[in-house]
Design a protein around this nucleic acid. Structure first.
Length: 283
DNA sequence: AGGATAGCCTGCGGGC
DNA sequence: TGCCCGCAGGCTATCC
């Protein structure tokens, strides 16, 4: 389940393979995963040209959990991995023609390497825009500040008046972009905040502590290559190891790493949530 | 209008 | 052993 750290690791592992490299051809096996827009924002049929065929990739951006490959032509392909999406680069000599059932789009890069968007669950997808501006003006304008740079003031501004649980607030991508179920639970445990606490009851100094913890938890996870809980691997096919450091996620009913009490598991903000009833007091 | 809910989709693990 | 069901969950559309 790629959240910000996994997506950032995918970005970094893609860079050496694609930067400055021309896209020789694009095969679209499942057009339904592609949403292509023109300069007027009108939806257009998915085509190799809109997915950067003939262009050279100049940079890969990330905001929250989304990537964007920016080409020399100005064209942009935004990649969202959803739950099970992968961007993998394979070497030319290996399976040059074969593609798996869930390989939806394959880019052949100059030199012969292939980059594949693979997503069994299809919660992810690709969004093509004619320019970076159109991406930012439409799709990315709905996102809050990137979670790696989130501040207490930013959280307070976006969520301070909300009656929702703080866990639900952290998962709201329009408030802060990049936090998912794993790192929401880990961050709340880190500062000892009950995930069911209503946002409106959180004081500014606690928002500051939470923002700092979100940044710390995400940065640490990036350093460990992200969390491989199900199928996540980076562009080179390498798994992460951050899952071995999870204090609460996936540990409901087990002993708290801090107090050795039993961790609670329940549903908060429509998501499975794990927390320590002793270490995480309200507010 | 904010917040809760349903639905999308497949793989996997538990239970029978 | 094999089948069925439930669960995993990011995000959008829809309902309340």
């Amino acid at each position: 389940m790629p959240e910000l750290p996994e997506v950032e690791c995918v970005r970094r592992s893609l860079l050496p393979h694609v930067l400055g490299r021309r896209v020789d051809s694009v095969r679209i096996y499942r057009p339904g995963v592609c949403d292509c827009r023109d300069a007027q924002g009108k939806k257009r049929p998915a085509s190799p040209a809109r997915l950067l065929e003939g262009a050279t990739v100049e940079s890969i951006l990330r905001h929250g959990k989304q990537l964007a490959m920016v080409a020399s032509t100005g064209g942009v392909v935004c990649v969202h991995l959803g739950m099970t999406g992968l961007m993998c680069v394979s070497h030319a000599q290996r399976d040059a023609t074969a593609h798996g059932r869930h390989d939806h789009v394959v880019w052949t890069l100059a030199g012969g390497r292939k980059m594949t968007f693979h997503d069994p669950r299809r919660f992810g997808g690709l969004w093509a825009f004619p320019s970076q501006d159109s991406l930012r003006a439409t799709r990315w304008s709905a996102l809050g500040p990137d979670a790696l740079t989130i501040t207490g003031g930013g959280l307070y501004e976006a969520l301070g008046g909300s009656g929702r649980a703080v866990k639900a607030g952290l998962l709201d991508q329009s408030a802060v972009a990049g936090v998912g179920n794993i790192y929401a639970d880990e961050s709340l445990f880190g500062i000892g905040m009950d995930p069911r606490t209503r946002c409106a009851r959180v004081r500014l100094d606690r928002w500051e502590a939470l923002a700092a913890e979100v940044r710390r938890v995400l940065s640490a996870a990036i350093e460990h290559g992200g969390s491989t809980v199900r199928n996540y691997v980076n562009a080179d096919g390498s798994a992460g190891s951050a899952q071995t450091r999870h204090a609460v996620y996936g540990r409901g009913g087990l002993a708290c790493v801090r107090c050795a009490g039993t961790l609670c598991q329940g549903v908060v903000g429509q998501r499975t949530t794990v927390w320590c009833p002793r270490c995480q007091g309200r507010g």
